[in-house]
Simulated scan of single mutants.
Amino acid sequence: MDNGISSAMAFGALLRDNPEAARIYDACTPQEKQRLLLRIESTPAEKMESLVSSLHYSDL
């Protein structure tokens, strides 16, 4: 499976397990979501938990 797809799947699964991160993601503007998607594509799936848990600290 492509790394970007693996990362996106990991991100989605982690959002389902982290309601606070999901709420933050849902409140993002389309531009913020685009920037985040670019970060997701370049983040290995095994490091995705760190990215999701840092959403509330992140300046998207």
Rank of each mutant, 00 (worst) to 15 (best):
A8K: 11
Y57C: 01
S50K: 13
L38Q: 09
A27Q: 12
P44L: 06
G12S: 14
Q31S: 11
C28K: 08
F11K: 05
A21F: 02
M48P: 06
P19V: 06
E46Y: 10
L51W: 03
V52M: 05
E49G: 11
A45R: 04
K47I: 00
A22K: 11
D2L: 10
L55K: 07
S50I: 13
P19Q: 07
L38A: 10
L51R: 02
K47L: 03
Y25H: 15
K47S: 10
L38W: 05
M1Q: 11
Q31C: 00
V52S: 02
A8R: 12
G12F: 01
A21C: 02
T29L: 04
N18W: 02
A45G: 04
P30V: 06
D17W: 00
G4C: 08
A21G: 06
Y25D: 02
E41R: 14
E41A: 13
S6Q: 15
L15C: 05
G12Y: 08
M9S: 09
V52K: 01
E20T: 14
L15S: 02
Y57N: 14
D2S: 15
T29K: 08
N3V: 09
P19K: 08
A45Q: 04
L36A: 09
Y57Q: 15
G12I: 05
Q34E: 14
A13K: 09
P44D: 09
L14V: 03
K47R: 15
S54P: 06
E20M: 08
L15R: 02
L37I: 09
M1A: 15
E20Y: 02
L14E: 11
G12R: 13
L15I: 05
E46Q: 12
I40M: 01
A13T: 12
M9H: 05
I24Y: 00
I5F: 09
R16P: 02
K47E: 13
G12M: 10
A8G: 09
M48H: 04
D2H: 10
I5H: 07
M48W: 02
I24K: 12
Q31R: 13
M1S: 14
R16C: 04
Y57T: 13
F11S: 05
R16G: 12
E46A: 10
Y25F: 15
Q34L: 14
Y57P: 00
Y25E: 12
C28I: 03
R16A: 15
T43N: 05
